[in-house]
Design a protein around this nucleic acid. Structure first.
Lengths: 196, 196
DNA sequence: TTTCCTTGCTAACGAACGTTAGGCTTAGTA
DNA sequence: TACTAAGCCTAACGTTCGTTAGCAAGGAAA
């Protein structure tokens, strides 16, 4: 029972994540998933209740990670908005890179959740984005950031970050921290007030 | 035969585009598509050869539009790289907004193309992105742009733009030209050399 | 040793899938 | 008037889908 590094259930989650990422949720069959795990399709149901449960777990676990990272990164109220935003960006990138397959599923496959999970998911997503909007708006109000339209800026910022799982490959020359720092630099440079 | 504004085949393309966008290609059945068109599933095959042909047409038509827009926007060799890049960005945004459903399909559903179409598609995509990379690199070499890593900058730039179909809705307060101009401003501001 | 829980198997279920064949209706053309 | 072609129908094909039932092997716990 306490044998492997990964429990069988975790192996299933992980393999499902990889398949959902490359093939898409709808185009991945339980038989494909079973085959990748070296077992039969029916056997998977000793571990899970349904195919959608797999997707549900992936999406909401990632949501948790994004929130936890954001909260930790922005916890210090004494800090100005700009560095807090920078830390939030770095946290976001860290989640994207350390769990890039799950992130890709999180970003692309959530629409295959059925109600009410889908609505719940979208609410979380909106709440998360609102965190960035608020930070940018604070920074703009304090004159730390140049962002005439905080909502627009937040959208663009997250868009750039969320493209990362599309090209990032774990074996690359840049470390996760490098990428995070670099992306934050490039994006915030355009936002920060000139002469800073 | 010359009756409608849209031929029946074009109506099918258009409805398929909308469904592929919201439901995804794999999760959209021919019976769903037929029902949305007010006909039966089998009848569609009087107009098309296969479901994948629909996806193929959408993806490659959009590729044509992106290329045509880019070529026109950057045709003037006498212009410096920075304004040519700006025009390319505006062209990209124009395609994304005037055909946002098809763009979303183009961006998300291409992986359901089977070989060799899939490889062909990816080659086109790479070629298109190379155009942006080259423009940014030229601008950086000439000192017009601040981009220590042109590939990185191109990736980030297109990422921000390609997120557009996720939030843009045709009835919004901003015109297509407004959005194009605004996005180009926001993105290039971070790229352009300070004091310009 | 007995009991149980985990893990997996085989076989099958009903449903939905993409696609095809063949026929009917209608409108335009000769 | 006869012919043709488009457009759509119904019915069905073979396949694959997610999922379930029932059973067997193996190790842990009693």
């Amino acid at each position: 029972m306490e044998t492997a590094l990964l429990s069988r259930k975790d192996q299933i989650d992980q393999t499902a994540t990889a398949l959902f990422r490359t093939r898409g949720f709808a185009a991945t069959s339980m038989r494909e998933l079973a085959s990748a795990l070296g077992m039969e399709a029916g056997s998977i149901y000793s571990h899970i209740r349904s195919k959608e449960e797999l997707l549900h777990r992936i999406c909401f676990r990632l949501a948790d990670e994004f929130f936890a990272g954001f909260d930790e990164a922005t916890a210090d109220d004494a800090l100005p908005a700009a560095p807090r935003l920078r830390r939030a960006v770095e946290s976001h990138v860290r989640v994207l890179t350390t769990d890039s397959a799950a992130s890709a599923v999180f970003l692309h496959e959530w629409r295959h959740l059925s109600e009410p999970a889908r609505t719940e998911f979208l609410a979380l997503r909106e709440q998360y984005e609102a965190g960035f909007r608020k930070l940018i708006a604070q920074g703009a109000a304090a004159g730390e950031l140049y962002a005439p339209d905080p909502a627009f800026a937040a959208l663009t910022l997250l868009a750039s970050l969320n493209w990362l799982p599309n090209w990032y490959r774990p074996g690359g020359s840049l470390s996760t921290a490098d990428i995070a720092h670099r992306l934050a630099n490039q994006l915030l440079f355009g936002l920060e007030v000139r002469g800073n």
